[in-house]
Every structure is written in C-alpha cells, then in structure tokens.
Design a protein around this nucleic acid. Sequence first.
DNA 1: CCTTGACTTGTTATCATATTACATATCAAT
DNA 2: ATTGATATGTAATATGATAACAAGTCAAGG
Lengths: 160, 160
Amino acid sequence: MTNQPIAFAEHDHSACCGDMMRRAEALAQDKGLRLTPVRKRTLEILLESHHALGAYDVLNRLAADGFGNQPPVAYRALDFLVENGLAHRIQRLNAFAACMHPGQPHRPVFFICTGCDTVAEAPGTGVGAAIATAAETVGFAVERMNIEAVGLCPACREAA
Amino acid sequence: MTNQPIAFAEHDHSACCGDMMRRAEALAQDKGLRLTPVRKRTLEILLESHHALGAYDVLNRLAADGFGNQPPVAYRALDFLVENGLAHRIQRLNAFAACMHPGQPHRPVFFICTGCDTVAEAPGTGVGAAIATAAETVGFAVERMNIEAVGLCPACREAA
DNA sequence: CCTTGACTTGTTATCATATTACATATCAAT
DNA sequence: ATTGATATGTAATATGATAACAAGTCAAGG
Ligand SMILES: [Zn+2]
Ligand SMILES: [Zn+2]
Ligand SMILES: [Zn+2]
Ligand SMILES: [Zn+2]
C-alpha cells in the first residue's frame, strides 16, 4: 500500500496539480519548449482530475475559455503534451491523461478503474523489461509500447 | 529465433489458416457456439493475412460477399469472435486480428511492425505476471489488460 | 406439426474520434 | 523592418462505433 500511485491515494490534489504545473513550466524552460496559453490550459484541464479526457471534452473546455473550437485546436495541444512527456495517451479509452512524472524517464503502466474511471500511472519497469526480453527473443525492435490494465481500484474493490 | 511467433516466421500460410479455421470450428462445437456464415467468413477474412483489419475493412469484404453492408454487421461478428477468443482487438490500431492460439488460455503481447504492418501475437506470460505483481502492490484487481509494442519486425529491421 | 422465446441478422440513423488543407497570426532572430 | 519557423484558427472531411427497431432463423416443448 506504500508507494501507491497518487491517483489511488488520498492526497491534497490542488497541491498535486500545482506541483505538476510547476514541473511542466520548469521542463519547458529547460528544454526550450513553448508552453503557450492553449497548451498550458490544456494541461491544467487534464490535471483537474485523475481521469482520462477525450479530445472533444478538452476541446469543449478550451472553447469555453475562449480558444478555438475546432478539433485540431485540442489535438494539437494534446499531441504537444504527449510528445513532450507532459501527458499520456490511453489507447484503450481514446483519451488523454496528464503525466504524473513529467521530465523523469519512466515506463508507465496504466490502471484503469471501471468503477470510478480513475486512471493511475504506476511504474512498470519490470513489465517493460519483460516485454524487452520477449521482443529480443523474437528479434523485434521496440520503439514504443502501451501497457494498460482494466479493473477495480482499491476503493471500488472495497465497495464491491 | 526458435519459438518465433508464426506471423514473423516463414510458413505455409494457407495451412496456417486452415488449421485455425479447423480449431475454431472444433471450439465452437465444443462450447456450443454458433459459428454462423457471417462469423465464419469474418474469421476467414481476418485470417487471410497477419495484419490487423479495421471494422470497416471487414465490413466492405462482407458486403462484397453478399452480407449486410452496415457497420453493426461487422462489429457484431467481430465482437463475437473477440468474446469467444477467436480474435483480438488491437487497441492501438482500432483494429482486429485473428487469434493464433484459439481455445488455449494465453496472455498475448502484440508486436506491431511499422514497416510491414504485420501484427504478431507472442506469449506474454512473464509480462502478465509482472503486471499482476504491480497490480497487487497497489491493490488493483485486474480484469483485462492490453500489452502492445510498436516497432520493427526482424525482416524490416534487416531491411533498414 | 406448430407455437414460443432466444438468438441472430438487416437497416436506419446518429454519435464519437481524428485528420487534411489552407489562411492568419505570432515569435525569434537577423 | 524582414524573414523564416512555429503556432493558431477554421472549414471540410475521413474514420471508427453505437443505439434502436424490424425481420428472420432456430431449437425446444407442447
Ligand atoms: Zn492529484
Ligand atoms: Zn508519465
Ligand atoms: Zn500464417
Ligand atoms: Zn490469441
């Protein structure tokens, strides 16, 4: 129960958000990325909860905030965040979630709760290594991978 | 190089198809499933190559063969195959591939080649175990998981 | 047989997700 | 100021998926 991914743990979420935003800004500074208003706002939107949001959910929010209201507005901002390690794409949900370890190289495994829709990012170094081994034995050169598990989080499991 | 997933190995593919179809029919017999004409044809279409096919690709093929030409026709057949372990859904591609181990309990890892679009199903027992461990430490009850790696297959790697 | 209920298929309509293409605006340097 | 690169806005379109209902098929049980 220790080393719980933050999404499944009781925590001061506004501090959690603030922390992530600060780290994102530091990272942008560092790498010379342009964390423009749309991009920053998009990240804030993703950070609001530990849920994955669809591109159109994000788009509606952005439009309400005075940004453009056409799909590319959201997709471009989301792609930027994903490419620069500030967000992850959850393939299974066709949705996006803010990264909880921006700037740190990590091999995430996503736990998707069907009870409360929370998406938690857990360290999956062991899993990554197992896949790398499997890949080597077949001669496959891995470039990217996605590892996602669907089920019940501790709280929803308790409730059930 | 031994124990290569069949999709990456030189093989008699028509025998490979025939074998899978026979296993599917045996499985249907066994479990009392109704492998109706659309469903059977859908499986044959998926088996034609070791690639993942989108639902609409399958639909076009089915329509050409005289079956209905509306999306639910394909989705229903595909869902049937997936639910009964005769096909897999590749989340990353929003597409479907025939299962190469029908009837055998297995934990597949998918290797998706960006060079030739081949999708290979490799055994991922070690990977599954690693995820199970990660899940246990956070108290998550896994119901389903998808493990997909994108990269270059042995042949395309050679060519590059 | 023939009725009945479960399952399967067909079809319409609609919704959800994602990309292409092009115009305009902003920025960081010469 | 000029210029090239990057970013944003917008329209149009492509691609993937589901809801709802009607009609057909099938395997008992009467
Ligand atoms: Zn939080
Ligand atoms: Zn992350
Ligand atoms: Zn084959
Ligand atoms: Zn399989």
